[in-house]
Design a protein around this nucleic acid. Structure first.
Lengths: 229, 229
DNA sequence: GTCCAATAAATTGCATGCAATTTTGTGTTG
DNA sequence: CAACACAAAATTGCATGCAATTTATTGGAC
């Protein structure tokens, strides 16, 4: 474990990543004991991490029944995307008013990384696609907006994992490129239109009905645990 | 303790209420041991409740330093109100499109309750004022929107507790009444204008600089613990 | 009086164990 | 075969204790 991260922080990061990269599928049980064993810690730390993931909406905890990766319904999917559109519109409006000095560069750099991950067929590409949107929110400088965007983006990923084609990224990179171009021009109308179009495309991609079962939890967590060291 | 509520649920509810009614002021330390002692449970349950309150933004937890009621800065205050305006606008738009069958009655009933609490000079009036907004969100039927509205309303209460006059409610009841009238007419423009005006008024009221120190934690928690039984 | 170091006290991070609850497996019956 | 009852196993909710960290107190020096 890294010196600065508490045990529960490390577990949180690993589980989060595994869920967002679709290695842990919706519905996958996450027993405290198994997680604790896998990370070589007690249930206490595992439980803390699960509580945090639950508040992010990535995990569902039912009393006396344990934790599992959240299983969004189609109804919830509608809600998430509707609210996401509202929030991302707000992000775009704010960024057209005020884009930080290195904002455009950071976005371009991020898209580069998305491209590299996609070419390498790395599972990271799925997570990075979502993180582009979180980066947009970060550029607004509003902590609470970042938190809310992060939640809707995470939930979108779950929806994709549940209802979309296996291992498909939720965003097209070219759509991100177009958005950056519009943000450069600081035209709220165009940028908002592109974001709206992009989010509808994301939503459509997320709603192809296709499901399969996931492999053994410890196996997956081992991979993600190593990655966080 | 109620039969259906877990220990941490009961503690969460009591602490939340105490914070929202301004009995526990921003910055108040919340030691696990004290809370556990007050409620007659171990630290485990106290810690779980604190973690939940932290994810709501009502409590701040720092590693190795413990938990305290959140202390919003003026900067955070700006953010919260800006985002709140965006979200409440979304609520209003949705309610003008679709108001549930008993929606208006529920709102009127709630305002009645606000009035009664205000007449009785009950600390509940502060909490109820915020809960009017949460009720609006509930009428949209969107779980996630309720969650986010709940967070911004809670944080607004903290801001008021920090920067506003002592024991002042964040909303004028007449403003709520006006809003209900506008929702009855299902006119999104008017309703949005009134809500915006209302939220600016709330924000102004929240920014009178005045602070004082709070009394003993156990004393306050005892009062709120009894109330949850 | 202020400042510093040492000590004591308070508190958190975490592991562990037990009781309660839920899930799974097995055997019996129709 | 399906349905049911019961036992065993797995898991959660929670309390408790210990080590680590932080905060408060005390005493001494200037």
């Amino acid at each position: 474990m890294s010196t600065n991260l508490s045990r529960s922080d490390a577990i949180y990061a690993s589980l989060r990543r595994a869920i967002l990269e679709q290695a842990l599928k919706p519905g996958t049980k996450l027993p405290e004991d198994s997680i604790g064993d896998t990370f070589g810690v007690s249930r206490t730390s595992a439980r803390n991490a699960l509580l945090r993931l639950a508040s992010d909406g990535l995990v569902e905890i039912k009393p006396n029944r344990g934790a599992a990766v959240a299983m969004p319904t189609l109804e919830e999917a509608e809600e998430v995307f509707a609210l996401r559109r509202c929030l991302e519109r707000e992000v775009i409006e704010r960024l057209c008013k005020r884009m930080p000095r290195d904002g455009i560069d950071a976005l371009i750099s991020h898209v580069r990384e998305e491209e590299r991950a996609l070419q390498a067929s790395s599972p990271r590409s799925i997570r990075l696609a979502g993180e582009f949107h979180i980066l947009l929110a970060e550029l607004t400088g509003s902590k609470l907006l970042i938190d809310f965007i992060s939640q809707v983006v995470s939930r979108s990923s779950l929806i994709l994992a549940r209802f979309g084609r296996p291992h498909s990224a939720e965003c097209g990179i070219d759509e991100h490129v177009q958005l950056i171009e519009a943000l450069k021009e600081q035209d709220p109308e165009t940028a908002s239109r592109i974001m709206d179009h992009h989010l509808h495309a994301v939503e459509d991609r997320a709603k192809t009905d296709d499901k399969d079962d996931g492999p053994d939890i410890a196996e997956i967590l081992n991979r993600y645990m190593s990655a966080s060291e």
